[in-house]
Design a protein around this nucleic acid. Structure first.
Length: 763
DNA sequence: TAGTTGGGTTTTTTT
DNA sequence: AACCCAACTA
């Protein structure tokens, strides 16, 4: 009996065909990850391949980690030597060694969307581009698309010759790349593009990696773009042992440059390829699969395959239409609660999927009202918060003084009396002398017309220099703590931001994050920490062992599965989105349909489709018809019964009475020098009252439903933390997104932390 | 320079 | 509805 005996014939073929190119067309739920992990195990155990010679590229860090864990369980050794990472992480790792060959420092910074935008803003000003006509976003979008296709600024300029609009974009593109290089920074797209560039300009570097990666596997191949394809092609050129796994029906990232032709034309690029189709689905009940097949069969551009299951039909899909989006959200929350009470499903078995992040709000409100523990994936990323970005900008400045964006972000935070006029003067000097913004700051006495502002800049420079000289001496944790203290950042938050307590806690959370990072790495460096932080996706932080309902977009849900799934907002105009209905490109609608296919196939046992006749979008009420995708599902698969009231009247009413609907509308903008107390009483109570209610409700529902808090530990339990050691849980507080845990550590004292970040263990 | 106000725009999806 | 930005005022 070997570990391979549990595989079906096709899966086994995928595992054992290790030589040459392989295209594994793996339908949803067909055990694709199993094949990949067993394939790696097979290479190691049966073929005697060194783990060092294997490269596996995944779509998210979460998937990478999961793959490593599963390989670990199969073979029990050597898995840490296998290179398993996302495209971006892979490229960063290579570039950290060789970026100098392209004229960057190896400690380059990674720019996120925000950083890109502020660079582009400056460029538009510099090039006199009218941002009314050409939006920064649009220009950046065009640049990103060009990079996805490996089109250099120079090539772009040549294509743009006769076209005014394109010429403008071309100028911006050229300037943008120059700025990034000057700042020693790369954006997400650059990571791929520059790696390809490196391989093309330095054959000896390429040869080294080609030689190392004798077996290459790429997951979610249908979502690779042209640049990523080229990267893989180059790496695999020598041994040609390239195994790509994907499902053309699940290609949903065209907007991000994914080129579906990569998978459709794989056999043209590699004529000797072995093609294996995995069509047996092990995830969903028959009716769910039938619905998915019916919907996707309306698409033309496909490889063509039909999923089947040995499972029984299961129950029909539920379809419910409501008058308003509020009622829809209320129904979903109530339905989940009743399933939980009746023991049909735990909260962690349920997921609510929707097309746009904005739809999360209403659902979230209802979850709060009913006291259902939930997690929203996506939306505002932890590292996207203002306070986190500020602190990170300090760290970036310390790490890489050439990163102008970071320096400018914090030069006047907290307020140092350095305004836009002074900044402009410094920038002008920096441009003239061809030096970085920070270097110019160091020579304020040479800058004309700065006057008194020079005296305000000097302490800032001293501050940064001070941190730099101390980094090696006191480590990252010390640096960060010192930084927060010296800048009096928390005081700044208290005086200038709404809800400063939450923000301060977020900053503390970042400190914990640094501590964890330092504890997990033998040779922690500031640069590496910043990089790790730059490449995390929201989904990477979701722990699936926590008993909570997950709310997320259909895109985020790719690759996941849940016993009970709700697809909310099944309306024309929402899903498929208005943009794609009006598009005259047939392919756009097909991509939406693939998204529907992804959504349906997430469900294992039970699938509920809901829609509303009216909902607010951008502050206006829209009236939508039921989604055309729902109509593509054969009627006999649907249960259209009226939503039956599951609760007594009073129960429903009492639940509604907690609604946030009466919450007064107020301006969230930071007030001018707010008197802290006053703000606290004027604004805070409504929010904290809501959360207070929530706590009560959670408590009640725990009592009634017997639901667990979703954490393995509770108040009074002894827990251990990777850095702080052992301690006792003082309190656990429900926060809309997470549990806030207060622990008194034996050595480190009292700390407040978020459960999902803190990784506490019960002992 | 800092803070206020009013007007205009929007992401649909994300490494 | 929420957010961002430019123009205006103290």
């Amino acid at each position: 009996m070997s570990i391979y005996d549990t595989l079906n014939d096709k899966q086994r073929m995928g595992v054992e065909t290790t030589e040459g190119p392989v295209l594994l067309l793996a339908g949803a739920g067909s055990g694709k990850t199993r094949v990949l992990t067993h394939r790696i195990a097979y290479l190691l155990e049966e073929e005697g391949v060194s783990p060092w010679n294997i490269l596996a590229i995944t779509f998210t860090n979460k998937a990478a980690k999961e793959m490593r864990d599963r390989v670990d369980r199969l073979v029990g050794y050597g898995s840490e030597q296998i290179w398993v990472a996302t495209f971006h992480a892979t490229c960063v790792r290579i570039l950290r060694r060789y970026a100098d060959r392209l004229g960057y420092d190896n400690n380059f910074t990674i720019y996120d969307t925000d950083d890109q935008k502020s660079v582009m803003k400056d460029i538009c000003k510099k090039l006199n581009i009218d941002t009314k006509m050409f939006k920064e976003r649009a220009i950046l979008g065009a640049i990103s698309s060009a990079k996805d296709e490996l089109i250099s600024p120079m090539q772009y300029a040549m294509d743009a010759f006769g076209d005014f609009q394109k010429r403008k974009i071309s100028e911006a593109y050229t300037e943008y790349q120059n700025t990034l290089k000057k700042n020693n920074a790369m954006d997400f797209d650059d990571l791929i593009v520059k790696t390809v560039e490196l391989f093309k300009s330095c054959p000896e570097v390429l040869a080294q990696y080609q030689n190392r990666f004798r077996y290459i596997m790429v997951d979610e191949y249908q979502d690779t773009n042209t640049a990523q394809f080229e990267l893989v092609r180059l790496l695999a050129e020598q041994y040609r042992n390239l195994c790509v796994v994907g499902d053309d029906d699940q290609s949903i990232y065209k907007f991000r440059g994914a080129n579906i032709r990569n998978i459709l034309d794989f056999e043209d690029t590699y004529p000797e390829a072995t093609v294996i189709k995995l069509e047996q689905n092990y995830r969903s009940m028959g009716n769910i699969l039938a619905a998915a097949n019916a919907v996707i069969s309306n698409n033309r551009g496909r490889k063509g395959k039909k999923l089947w299951t040995a499972e029984s039909e299961g129950s029909r899909l539920h379809l419910r239409q409501f008058d308003t989006a509020q009622e829809e959200a209320a129904f979903i929350a109530e339905d989940i609660r009743s399933k939980n009470r009746e023991g049909e499903a735990s909260y962690g078995d349920c997921a609510v999927l929707y097309r746009t992040n904005a739809q999360a709000r209403l659902l979230e409100e209802r979850m709060v009202v009913l006291g259902i523990p939930y997690t929203v994936v996506g939306g505002q990323n932890f590292y996207g918060r203002k306070e986190i970005k500020d602190v990170l900008a300090y760290l970036k400045t310390i790490d890489n003084g050439r990163d102008d964006v970071a320096v400018k972000r914090i030069i006047n935070i907290p307020k140092r009396g350095i305004g836009s006029t002074s900044i402009a003067k410094v920038q002008a000097y920096a441009d003239a002398q061809e030096m970085s913004f920070y270097d110019a700051l160091c020579r304020t006495e040479e800058i004309p017309g700065l006057g008194k502002a020079a005296a305000k800049i000097a302490p800032f420079v001293t501050l940064i220099q001070g941190f730099r000289s101390k980094v090696d001496y006191y480590g990252l944790e010390g640096l960060l703590k010192d930084l927060i203290q010296m800048t009096e950042y928390e005081e700044y938050l208290k005086e200038n931001e709404e809800e400063p307590e939450d923000r301060i806690e977020n900053v503390q959370e970042l400190v914990n994050k640094v501590i964890t990072y330092e504890a997990e790495h033998d040779q922690p460096t500031l640069g590496e920490f910043l990089e790790e932080v730059a490449l995390v996706a929201e989904i990477d932080n979701v722990k699936d062992d926590v008993n909570r309902v997950l709310l997320m977009t259909l895109h985020s849900a790719k690759g996941l599965e849940f016993p009970h799934v709700y697809l909310a907002g099944m309306e024309d105009g929402v899903f498929p989105s208005y943009m794609n209905i009006t598009s005259d490109n047939r392919e756009d609608l097909e991509e939406e349909r693939r998204l529907a296919y992804v959504g349906i196939t997430r469900a294992m046992k039970d699938l509920t489709l809901t829609c509303a006749k009216s909902r607010m979008i951008h502050g206006q009420t829209q009236y939508n018809m039921m989604s055309r995708f729902v109509k593509e599902i054969p009627d006999e698969l649907l249960d259209r019964s009226k939503p039956k009231p599951r609760f007594s009247e009073e129960e429903v009413i009492s639940a509604y009475s907690h609604t946030f609907a009466q919450r007064p509308v107020y301006d969230y903008r930071p007030k001018a020098v707010p008197k802290p107390k006053e703000t606290a009483t004027a604004v805070k109570p409504f929010v904290s009252q809501g959360i207070g209610d929530l706590n009560k409700i959670v408590g009640i529902s725990k009592g009634i439903g017997g639901a667990k808090s979703g954490l393995e530990y509770g108040v009074g339990d002894r827990v251990s933390h990777i850095k702080f050691g052992e301690g006792t849980v003082l309190s656990v507080q429900e926060d809309p997104r997470d549990y806030k845990v207060t622990v008194v550590f034996d050595k480190a004292g009292q700390k407040v932390m978020y459960a999902s970040f803190a990784k506490l263990r019960k002992i």
